[in-house]
Design a protein around this nucleic acid. Structure first.
Lengths: 194, 194
DNA sequence: CATTCACACTAGCGCTTGCTTGGTTGAATG
DNA sequence: CATTCAACCAAGCAAGCGCTAGTGTGAATG
């Protein structure tokens, strides 16, 4: 058994697994289906992953780490006004959500299938990401750009954004950036620099 | 086999199934677990439901029908200003979501496990419900209470509301009505009657 | 040239799954 | 009082499940 995290083969297998998990759901996806999609036999799968659970954890970890990197980059790149940072964060969120779509759909739908250890590890990643959001929301509240309770506002915003995976059509006319800007416009009250 | 929809026993079994589906997920819930929870043997289950899929469909149908009834009632009961109707709709949405919580969590998480026929039938119910939302959103847009595209605004709002099942704590300090009003306040711009 | 190692294979074990079958109840109906 | 019928049970089948054990490669390493 290999089970080292950095293997490039493992990355590719994780990507394929994410796709199947989205199509079929985690429980309905059998190790035999995964193996076939990867062009190997089911037994060989356990050379790369300790068990089926670990594949799920790998998929979610991959997606969440990317989200963190992209969000931090976006915040570092934009100027420091609350409005700019809010826009940047919303755009970054949708960018990850829709480029790493499979991984994020799995994270949203199959989170509860994680065992205790994996969930503990991944919770930290997710919390780090959500902390970025609360920071940006706080700044927006301080400048009176948005009204309400910091906790509620951040939940509502993340809900609205995460929900997009259910209806957004990448082949359609709207770009992710347009979506992000529309959402920000909807919730900002006074000095909305659009 | 009975398989008539109106049986009172069936209603009770559906309620229990919803609870188990939330706890374990549809795929992980075995017919034996369902039967035990209902105090019968697994074979007897198929007297009430044709197959496992039909239990899932029954759970979701139940929840969606209730949502429709509650929303229509709320709209009929409130006065006809766009603001009042928006508040009423948001409150009604959260009311169903949190009283019929199990059924709605199942509907949100396990929708994709429905077979084609069930999905077609239930899609109509869901569309009827969403049509109510779009109507109310249209009125709010017409009065300049909310800014943006009708399609996007309704998706964002429903996303924010549906997301609450992931974090809302009924034992906490906030009431569903407070939540609804906070959301409306967040998205309304000019004549927000709060 | 011997050894190691990542990667893959074959074969199958032990268990669980959804669902079926054939039959038994006890209350309601005519 | 014979019949009906919803509701349940015991037993089990066929299929599929995650995972393991043991083995065979061809390329890289010493």
């Amino acid at each position: 058994m290999n089970v080292m995290n950095a293997s490039p083969r493992r990355k590719e297998l994780t990507r394929l697994a994410a796709q199947l998990f989205v199509q079929e759901g985690f429980d309905r996806t059998t190790v035999r289906m995964l193996a076939q999609e990867m062009g190997i036999k089911s037994g060989s799968l356990f050379h790369h992953f300790r068990d089926k659970q670990e594949i799920l954890a790998a998929v979610i970890e991959e997606g969440t780490e990317n989200a963190l990197v992209i969000a931090r980059d976006a915040l570092a790149r934009c100027d420091s006004s609350a409005s700019a940072r809010l826009h940047a964060m919303a755009r970054a969120h949708l960018e990850t959500l829709l480029t790493d779509r499979n991984a994020h759909v799995v994270a949203l739908y199959e989170w509860r299938r994680l065992d205790t250890e994996a969930r503990a590890h991944l919770s930290h990643l997710r919390d780090a990401y959500e902390a970025l959001w609360e920071e940006v929301i706080d700044e927006a509240l301080a400048e009176d750009l948005v009204h309400g309770d910091r906790f509620l506002v951040s939940r509502f915003v993340m809900g609205a954004l995460n929900w997009t995976v259910r209806w957004y059509d990448p082949e359609g006319t709207r770009t992710p950036d347009e979506l992000a800007d529309e959402l920000v416009a909807m919730i900002t009250h006074s000095a909305s620099t659009r």
